[in-house]
Every structure is written in C-alpha cells, then in structure tokens.
Simulated assay, not measured.
Amino acid sequence: MNSPRMEVKCGVDCCNYWENNCCNADALEVNPMRGKKPNTSDDTCCTTFKPSK
C-alpha cells in the first residue's frame, strides 16, 4: 500500500532534503523542542533535518 504524499514547504536551504523550497524526504518527523508540550510552532522542530553536503 502506498502512503499519501503531500507537498511540504521548507525554507531551510541547508538541509539535504531541501529542493526549490520543498522537503523531498521520504518521511517527515516533527517533535516537541526541549521536551515540553508545544503551544506554538516555535515549540516544535523538524528532526528529519540532515545537513546538506
């Protein structure tokens, strides 16, 4: 079974998965920052990030 695919916009151009302002990773993982319960997007981070070569 194929997973749904959606466009994920990304402005982190130093990530290996960044291409034309979009994330091209096969999967995306977003977690809370600093182990606290998020209240805003500032309290989350993309843990899929991999520095570009």
Rank of each mutant, 00 (worst) to 15 (best):
Met1Lys: 11
Met1Tyr: 10
Asn2Lys: 14
Asn2Leu: 15
Asn2Arg: 13
Ser3Thr: 10
Ser3Lys: 11
Ser3Ala: 15
Pro4Lys: 10
Arg5Gly: 09
Arg5Ile: 14
Arg5Val: 15
Met6Tyr: 10
Met6His: 09
Glu7Lys: 06
Glu7Gly: 06
Val8Ile: 15
Val8His: 03
Val8Asp: 04
Val8Phe: 07
Val8Lys: 00
Lys9Cys: 10
Lys9Ala: 12
Lys9Asn: 14
Lys9Arg: 15
Cys10Pro: 01
Gly11Ser: 13
Gly11Ala: 09
Gly11Trp: 02
Gly11Glu: 09
Val12Leu: 08
Val12Met: 07
Asp13Glu: 13
Cys14Glu: 11
Cys14Asn: 14
Cys14Arg: 06
Cys14Val: 14
Cys14His: 09
Cys15Lys: 00
Cys15Ala: 08
Cys15Asp: 03
Cys15Tyr: 00
Cys15Thr: 02
Asn16Val: 13
Asn16Gln: 14
Asn16Met: 14
Asn16Glu: 15
Asn16Leu: 15
Trp18Met: 01
Trp18Lys: 02
Trp18Cys: 02
Trp18Ser: 00
Trp18Arg: 00
Glu19Asn: 13
Asn21Glu: 12
Asn21Ala: 14
Asn21Ser: 12
Asn21Asp: 14
Asn21Ile: 04
Asn21Leu: 10
Cys22His: 13
Cys22Asp: 14
Cys22Gln: 15
Cys22Ala: 15
Cys22Arg: 14
Cys23Ser: 09
Cys23Thr: 05
Cys23His: 05
Asn24Met: 11
Asn24Ala: 13
Asn24His: 12
Asn24Gly: 11
Asn24Ile: 12
Asn24Cys: 08
Ala25Val: 07
Ala25Asp: 05
Ala25Ser: 14
Ala25Thr: 05
Ala25Lys: 01
Ala25Gly: 07
Asp26Arg: 07
Ala27Arg: 08
Ala27Val: 14
Ala27Trp: 07
Leu28Tyr: 01
Leu28Gln: 08
Leu28Arg: 06
Glu29Thr: 14
Glu29Val: 13
Val30Ser: 09
Val30Asn: 02
Val30Phe: 04
Val30Tyr: 00
Asn31Ala: 14
Met33Ser: 05
Arg34Asp: 11
Arg34Gln: 10
Gly35Lys: 02
Gly35Leu: 06
Lys36Cys: 12
Lys37Asp: 11
Lys37Phe: 10
Lys37Tyr: 08
Lys37Arg: 12
Asn39Phe: 03
Asn39Thr: 09
Asn39Ala: 08
Thr40Glu: 05
Thr40Tyr: 04
Thr40Gly: 03
Ser41Arg: 00
Ser41Lys: 00
Ser41Tyr: 00
Ser41Phe: 02
Asp42Thr: 04
Asp42Phe: 04
Asp42Trp: 01
Asp42Lys: 01
Asp43His: 00
Asp43Phe: 00
Asp43Gly: 01
Asp43Asn: 01
Asp43Pro: 00
Thr44Ser: 03
Thr44Cys: 06
Thr44Ile: 05
Cys46Ile: 05
Cys46Lys: 03
Cys46Glu: 02
Cys46Val: 05
Cys46Gly: 03
Thr47Arg: 06
Thr47Gly: 04
Thr47Tyr: 02
Thr47Met: 09
Thr47Gln: 04
Thr47Ala: 07
Thr48Ala: 05
Thr48Glu: 06
Phe49Pro: 02
Phe49Leu: 05
Phe49Cys: 03
Lys50Glu: 12
Lys50Cys: 10
Lys50Gly: 05
Lys50Asn: 11
Pro51Cys: 08
Pro51Gln: 15
Pro51Arg: 09
Ser52Phe: 03
Ser52Leu: 07
Ser52Ala: 13
Ser52Cys: 06
Lys53Trp: 04
Lys53Met: 10
Lys53Thr: 07
Lys53Pro: 04
